[in-house]
Amino acid sequence: MTAPVQLVDALERIEGEGLTSIEAADSPGALEELRVRYLGRSGELAGILSRIGQAPPEDRRAIGQAANTAKRRLQEAHSIRQAALEGAEAVGVAKADLTMPGRRAWEGGVHPVTRVIDEICEIFRELGFSKVRGPEAETEWYNFQALNIPLEHPAADMWDTFYLADGVVLRSHTSPVQARIMETHEPPVRVVVPGLCYRRDPFDPTHAPAFEQIEGLAVDEGIDFVEFRSTIEHFVHRFFGRETTARFRPAYFPFTEPSAEVDVSCHMCGGSGCPTCKGTGWIEIMGSGMVHPAVFEAVGYDPERYTGYAFGMGSARIAMLRYGIPDIRLFYEGDARFLAQFR
């Protein structure tokens, strides 16, 4: 026969120990072990209850009440502790080493020249320019004569051209698209033409035999040099920033007249002279000018009625300026370490 006092004592001991260890449990696992040990089907509390029958009948009720109280307290403590442990996990005071790297997917990247092309075309799109293209292999006619460039003339030497066959070249500029567009569309014409051009320059830090250019053409009634200048200035401010200034210098392109070379103030030194601008304070960014009447005549536009302007800039060169890239060859080698810098 078990003395009832012994059972009550045992209950108190179990409750005391149980509460202490539950409150001290430092992980859900440890807490679960304690739950099993004290509250489980064959736990310590169950062990006491299974021995109630051995107690005298008059004591059984009191022992039962004590056992229920102990069970309730232990369950409460368990719930509180469980909530505390879960809460603690939620705020990160947990066991995982959260400094370990996360799981990532491969990251792609848009080529820096593409980014510059897109940005430039977007600025001109706002001004009503649509985006067109033309063939990279061209006839001599479109590459030269239609643009008022006589063959066998020093002017034609401005472009050292690849030939594919008699009368067929790899276009040495995007300007042939001017003629192609005007032949097939009536004014008003406003287009930008990104595309590859080819010149017989071997690869070196500033040259590539194939390189991206963006051509622009605007033709309408009433377009004049003042409008041309302010449009290009607007572009320069949008692309290079308000603090950048543009200047226009006389130049010669057979398909524009007046022709102008456009410089922008050097972004590195602000115009005081540095290696980037070769000490001049200015960086050349495009050739441009008012469309030559001979080009209008070649495509069947009335040069007395229509005027316009055209420009061409090297997107790869501008990308070099924008991102501080020292060598144009980096664009075409496909080095993933380089390409991954432009996400």
């Binding site: 009503g128 320019f129 985006k131 067109v132 008003p188 287009v191 040099f225």
Partner: peptide, 26 residues
């Protein structure tokens, strides 16, 4: 050029229409 290109000031850049549609390739 004798007048000086950079003295042709004033005038706002213009937005004008274009009869040419975008090339869908882009």
């Amino acid at each position: 050029r004798r007048h000086g290109y950079n003295r042709f000031e004033g005038g706002a850049f213009a937005v004008r229409p274009s009869s040419v549609p975008d090339d869908p390739a882009w």
